[in-house]
Design a protein around this nucleic acid. Structure first.
Length: 566
RNA sequence: GGUCGCGUAGCUCAGCUGGAUAGAGCAUCUGGUUUCUAACCAGACGGUCAUAGGUUCGAAUCCUAUCGCGAUCACCA
C-alpha cells in the first residue's frame, strides 16, 4: 500500500511540476519519495515527508506545498484514499478507505502460506556457520544466544527462499583439544594432580566420558601411568604421552566423538537445531589444503619467517602487530586454518555468514584482510558479533566457565524453563545489546513473561473459534468500528512491513516485539468487546482469526509452540 | 593506552535506514471477573534519551569529543 501511495505521489509530481529546480530523475530515485506507516492513528495510515524535502528546492513553505499536492491528488480520485490531511511542519497524511484497510483480514484468513509474501527475487546459496563451540564439553547457557540467533536467521533466510546451508565448525585439533584429552586420561588413571602451567577441564562430564572409555583404554593407560606420573608440566606430559601412546590420535578423536554425540548433538536436538554439516578442522589439513593457502599468502608477499615461525603481515592493514600463521614448532594456528576454511566457503557460496561471540571482534579485520589479500571478495562475507548473555536467578548472576566445570548447561536451562522460553528470550533483544536473562521471568506465568502472554492470546482466540462454525464467515468491514478493532486492523496491516524489515536487516527481535504488541492489542480488545454475544458477530470472529494466524506464524518462525489450550 | 559494543522511567528493556506528544513490562498506588479463559483489562505515578558541541526545516536516532559500563588486545580457539 505504501508503494501504491508513493507511485501516486511520484506520477503527480512528474506530471504537474514545471519548476526547473526539480529534477525528474531525482524524484524517481529509489528512496527519494518516502511513504511510511504512521505510529499515531491521528495521523492517518501513511505519511510522506516529501513536502518538507521539496521546500528547500522550491523555496516555499512545506505546508503550502503539501496543500498543493493534496488538492492535486484528491482531484484525481484515487479510490483507496479516503482523505488527505496536511499537518505542520509539512507532513502529508493519508487516510485509507475503511474497506481497503479491513481487507487485510480476509487476505490473511484466505492465505495458506503467509510467508509466501517474503520470497526474495534474488535467490542465493547462503552458508551460515554458528555455535561452533569447542567440543570440550556440553553446550552451556553462554552458547545459547548464538545458537538461537543462528537458527532463527537460517529460518528467516529459508523463508525468503534462499538455499541455506548450516554448518558447525568443529575445532578438533589444537591445544584445547589436547588438554581435553589429557583431562580425560587423568580421570581414567585417577591422577587428579593439576599441572603447573595449564588448567585441565574439571566438569563432571569428564569422568562420564572416561567411564565410557574405561574398558577400552584403562589397561593400556595403566602401563604408562608410572612413566607419566613424574611430569608436572603439561607440555612434557603431552610429549611423552604422544611418544609412548601411539594411538593417542585415535583416543583424542574418540573423546571428541563422544562429547559431540552424547552432549552437543543431544543439546541441539532438544532445541530443534540440525546442521547440514559438521565440518572438522582436521579436514583442512588432510590434503595439504591449508599449506596451499599459505603458499598463496606467501606468493602475494604477505608473509615472512621470523623466529622459526611464519608471520602474516597484518600490520600492513593497520593491526598492532603481525600474526603467526605457523608456530615455531610447525603447528598451524587457528588463524591459518581459518583462512583456509573461509576461502573454501567463499569459493562455493554466494554469501557466507558467521555468527561469533563479540570476544572475536579484534579477529574480524585480521581474517578479512587476509582473505582480501589473497583475492577474495569479502563483501560476500558478513560476521555477526553477539554480545554475551548473563544469566540471573533471583537477581544473582550465575557463572559460566567451561574450564572450571562450574557452568550451567543449556540442557539444564532448557529442562527448567522449556524450549519455548529459550527460543524467545535469546532473540528478544538485538544482538549488539548485552542480555540479562532472569530465569524467574521465564518461569513466571503472567504478563511478566512475554512468551506466555503471546501464547495466551493465541489460546484465547482458539477457544472462541471452537465455539463457532467458521464454514461460512460473513465478513463486513462496516461492523468493525470500535477503536480497538481499528487498532487491530492497523497492526495487521503493518505485519508485512515489520517482517520484511526484520528479514532484510536480520533482526528477529522486531518480530517478537510486534507479536507482543499484537497480543496486547488483542487482550485489550477481548476484555472490552464481546465477540460472541447473543448473536455471533462473524466480522469480529474473522478479525481475531486473522490475529491468531499471524501470531501462530510468528511463533512458529521461532520454533515456539502456539498452544490451543492453556 | 588502541579497538569494538552499549549508556533511554527506580529495575529490565523497545524505539535508532532522522520525523509529529519518547513507548512497554516489572515495581508502587487505584479500580475492574453472575459475561468468549483474570495466565487478563482500565487508570495513576514515573524521563535533561550519559554529557557537551555539530549537521538541518526537524536529532534518542547521524557526526565529533568527553565520561561511565562491558568485551578484546597470544606462537589459545
Amino acid at each position: 500500500m505504501n508503494i501504491e501511495i508513493k507511485n501516486i505521489i511520484e506520477s503527480y509530481l512528474l506530471e504537474t511540476t514545471s519548476d526547473e529546480n526539480i529534477n525528474p530523475r531525482e524524484i524517481s530515485k529509489e528512496g527519494y519519495i518516502e511513504v511510511q506507516k504512521t505510529t499515531n492513528e491521528l495521523h492517518g495510515d501513511y505519511y510522506s515527508n516529501i513536502a518538507m524535502k521539496l521546500s528547500k528546492v522550491l523555496k516555499k513553505n512545506p505546508v503550502d506545498i503539501g496543500e498543493d499536492i493534496k488538492k492535486g491528488l484528491l482531484g484525481r480520485k484515487h479510490p483507496q484514499i479516503k482523505n488527505i490531511e496536511i499537518k505542520k511542519p509539512g507532513f502529508i497524511n493519508f487516510f485509507i478507505e475503511d474497506s481497503k484497510r479491513a481487507s487485510i483480514v480476509t487476505d490473511i484468513i484466505k492465505n495458506n502460506n503467509i510467508f509466501e509474501k517474503f520470497k526474495t527475487k534474488i535467490k542465493k546459496n547462503i552458508h551460515i556457520e554458528f555455535v561452533s563451540a569447542n567440543p570440550t564439553g556440553p553446550l552451556h547457557v553462554g552458547h545459547g544466544r548464538g545458537l538461537i540467533f543462528g537458527k532463527t536467521l537460517s529460518n528467516m533466510l529459508r523463508i525468503q527462499g534462499h538455499n541455506v546451508f548450516t554448518e558447525y565448525y568443529v575445532n578438533n585439533i589444537g591445544k584445547q583439544i589436547d588438554i581435553l584429552s589429557i583431562s580425560v586420561i587423568l580421570s581414567l588413571i585417577d591422577l587428579k594432580r593439576p599441572f603447573d602451567d595449564v588448567d585441565i577441564y574439571k566438569g563432571k562430564y569428564i569422568s562420564t566420558v572416561a567411564n565410557k572409555l574405561k574398558l577400552k583404554y584403562r589397561d593400556l593407560l595403566l602401563i604408562h601411568k608410572d612413566s607419566l606420573s613424574g611430569n608436572k608440566v603439561y607440555e612434557s606430559f603431552l610429549g611423552s604421552l604422544k611418544k609412548d601412546f601411539n594411538s593417542y590420535l585415535v583416543f583424542r578423536d574418540t573423546v571428541i566423538d563422544i562429547i559431540i554425540n552424547d552432549y552437543i548433538k543431544k543439546d541441539l536436538e532438544d532445541l530443534n537445531v540440525q546442521f547440514s554439516n559438521w565440518f572438522h578442522e582436521s579436514e583442512l589439513i588432510k590434503d595439504n589444503f591449508v599449506y596451499q593457502i599459505l603458499e598463496k599468502i606467501k606468493s602475494k608477499g604477505l608473509s615472512y619467517v621470523k623466529d622459526g615461525a611464519v608471520w602474516f603481515k597484518s600490520t600492513k592493514y593497520g593491526d598492532d602487530k603481525d600474526r603467526v600463521l605457523v608456530r615455531a614448532n610447525s603447528a598451524l594456528t587457528y588463524f591459518a586454518t581459518d583462512i583456509a576454511y573461509h576461502s573454501l566457503k567463499l569459493d562455493k557460496y554466494d554469501h557466507i555468514i558467521n555468527i561469533w561471540g563479540s570476544d572475536h571482534h579484534g579477529y574480524v579485520p585480521r581474517l578479512t584482510n587476509a582473505l582480501k589479500g589473497i583475492g577474495y571478495d569479502t563483501d560476500k562475507m558478513s560476521i555477526h558479533l553477539i554480545q554475551f548473555a548473563n544469566l540471573y536467578r533471583d537477581g544473582e548472576k550465575m557463572s559460566m566457565s567451561t574450564r572450571s566445570g562450574e557452568f550451567i548447561t543449556l540442557k539444564s536451562l532448557a529442562d527448567e524453563i522449556g524450549p519455548d522460553a529459550i527460543n524467545f528470550f535469546y532473540i528478544n533483544k538485538k544482538i549488539e545489546q548485552h542480555l540479562d536473562f532472569e530465569i524467574n521471568t521465564a518461569l513466571s506465568k503472567d504478563k511478566d513473561n512475554p512468551v506466555y502472554y503471546i501464547q495466551y492470546a493465541h489460546a484465547r482466540i482458539e477457544k472462541i473459534i471452537q465455539k463457532v462454525s467458521t464454514d461460512n464467515l460473513n465478513f463486513d468491514d462496516r461492523e468493525l468500528i470500535d477503536p480497538k478493532e481499528q487498532e487491530l486492523l492497523r497492526l495487521l496491516n503493518s505485519y508485512v512491513q515489520t517482517i520484511e524489515q526484520a528479514m532484510d536487516t536480520l533482526q528477529p527481535q522486531l518480530i517478537t516485539n510486534y507479536l507482543y504488541k499484537l497480543s496486547q492489542s488483542f487482550h485489550s480488545y477481548y476484555a472490552n468487546v464481546k465477540i460472541i454475544g447473543e448473536e455471533i458477530n462473524y466480522s469480529r470472529v474473522s478479525l481475531v482469526m486473522a490475529v491468531q494466524k499471524i501470531l501462530k506464524n510468528g511463533l512458529n518462525l521461532f520454533d515456539i509452540s502456539a498452544p490451543e489450550d492453556m
